[in-house]
Design a protein around this nucleic acid. Sequence first.
DNA 1: TTATAGAATTTTTTT
DNA 2: AATTCTATAA
Length: 769
Amino acid sequence: MNAHESALLEDLNPPQREAVLHIGGPLLVLSGAGSGKTRVITRRVAYLVKVHEVFPWRILAVTFTNKAAREMRERLVQLLGRQANDLVVSTFHSAAAMILRREAEHVGLTRSFVIYDDGDQLNVVKRAMREAGLEQSMQPRDILSRIDQEKNAARLPEDMEVEPGDERGMLVRKVYHAYQERLRAANAVDFGDLLLLLVSLFRKRPEVLENYRRRFHHVLVDEFQDTNPVQYALLKQLAPPPSANLVVVGDDDQSIYRWRGADVDNILNFPRQYPGAKVVKLEQNYRSDRNILDAAYEVIRKNTRRMDKKLWSDRPAGQTLQLMLNRDERMEAQEVARQILALQREGFIKFSSMAVFYRVNAQSRVLEEGLRLARVPYTLVSGRSFYDRAEVRDASAYLRLMVNPRSDADLLRIINTPARGIGDTTVERVTDYANTQAKSLYEVLSEPERVPALNSTAVKRLRTFHGLLKSLHDFAQGTTDAASAVDEMLRETKLVETLVAEGSDESNTRAENLREFLGAAQEFDLNRAAAAVAAASQPREEVPPEVDAAPLSADTPPLQAFLEQISLVGDADAEVGEGRVALMTLHAAKGLEFDAVFLTGLEDGVFPHSRALKGEDPDNGEEMAEERRLCYVGFTRARKRLFVSLAQCRSLFGELRYNPPSRFLRDVPPALFGISEQDVPEPPRAVATPPRKRTWDDDDGPRIDRSYSQASDMESVSGDVRGMRVRHEQFGVGRIVATDGTGPNAKVTVEFGGAVGLKRVIARFLMPG
DNA sequence: TTATAGAATTTTTTT
DNA sequence: AATTCTATAA
């Protein structure tokens, strides 16, 4: 055993060692929460490089989130120094984007393709539907989510299976088809395409796949329980069964992305897919005190269909969990802030090792306010808020057009931003003409006089606009860094200028955001320059002639690389925040750990989310199982202190709701909270007049679940109401034709007759008539 | 064409 | 509650 080897195996337990040392063939590491899996992955990579002398560029390590990828990279830099530069460590999506860019020509794209986000996607769907005259048929959003599902399942439009009588399915397929055509015409892809197009390219052109197989001899996947079928298909292509060196690490109890197509069966069936795979279980938890671990176990054990395992720990029992009962969400925020300050003062826990979790983003606002009032420093860890601001998205749209003028979605976004007198009618005429000619909008704009029915002012304005885009495009061709492109774009488009001229507080903040955007580009350029220097100064190993060992993103032009970072990475890593409490959703919390964790909104309807609550057997459904796993993830983030908080009433989405305590709380034995049975909070009783103050054990008669009710004449749709006569404030009297959904937002389609015709309205707004 | 007001609609979680 | 859509006036 040489020095490297012993250093790398230092303080690993026997199964961890086994996982690091395994060589030759597939390996499944089942790693419970806090069992040191990141350590295992990084040590293993280092071991391959240092002891087995595997070239770093032969190793591909993928994760799901940017945060995880970055963290893994950092640790590998610590272990391997500059050798770590040649490793490919990234998320599925950015690895796929890099490969797809190199192979773009094979799939009908050019290297400068742009990546559409869900807003762009929705616009494309809407336009495709309008073009095909299918507007009334289905909600664009529903169609889009069906399309995404298909993509997650690795199915192109032609692979979609539709039952003969399934009209909606046929419709989805039709729109999916048109949607794909539009994306290709715009030289654009969506998130799903990044993976799907690559998988189908590899299917069609084995020789292209072969290049990557020859290169990547070692593939590692973190959070494998969250892979969806496309991702798994890609893995199987790159590291084919039965004998490839594929290492997958995951925990079926932490699978929380089913809604994105993730399939827990991928991990459960891995040994069948890769017969002979070695299986290692990591069951010792090093993170949480035992009270926390026990509570987490009591929650997760309610799930059937899980690999049987129980984490153990030789850590002390530690403090009990703490239950926080609050009157409403404001008090919850205030109490959280108070406890945080107390912990910092008396518990000697740093702000930076505390976190507040919530189920839905909408909860963050009040929590922020509470922390701000109490002067608790915090950072909101929200995926990509900065790049989601309207003005920043406008700026990105211009940048994308600079790189890829064919991108119709981007062009439509900014054609009249800032206002340049090109209105809806003109735009409609231009798009109609573009559709009939099968040309991109940019192309049509180069000869606007050909568009029928345009007046001369419109033609002139379009020509000016085209001139602007053209000169920006030309500028981008010659530029060598992102910042100068952004700078040029901001100047030429007068985006900042117009905002400043407006003079309102709001427009000033927006202008400020655009300056910050320029700052982000400058920072990007600096990082890139530094990386280039590091790569150049590095001695290159012998590379066999038939293998392409270049970094995957080797010759992506800077502006394009910057745009890719915006699309795929967001600004999550902007400020991790030294000395600040972290605020995030439970999903964002996966993979992290903190000394003290506050889990808020433990109420049925909030967490578990109301959508998991409905259905036949809400306690057994897959959705509820996923909520439960989410709860498990939340609990197991905590090292020493876990605070669980709920509010008796909370206004969420504009309505006041009285939610019963979360069912997950009932699963935790009261002793773990340091309380006895009789102090367990009861579900609150119904309240007729909301603002009245009351305590938890007030009792006033029969329990009515008011959580969903709203004052109205038809507050819910129940039974068959078709044919019923109804009156609408605006549309008058009509008859119900069809219903959609139940509860407060149930919709019905009503035939109003006369000029009004069919309308879909919320049942709440109708009166029997 | 633009600005504005009022109405409708929306909301889980993220790459 | 906040955002997005639609109708109407300017």
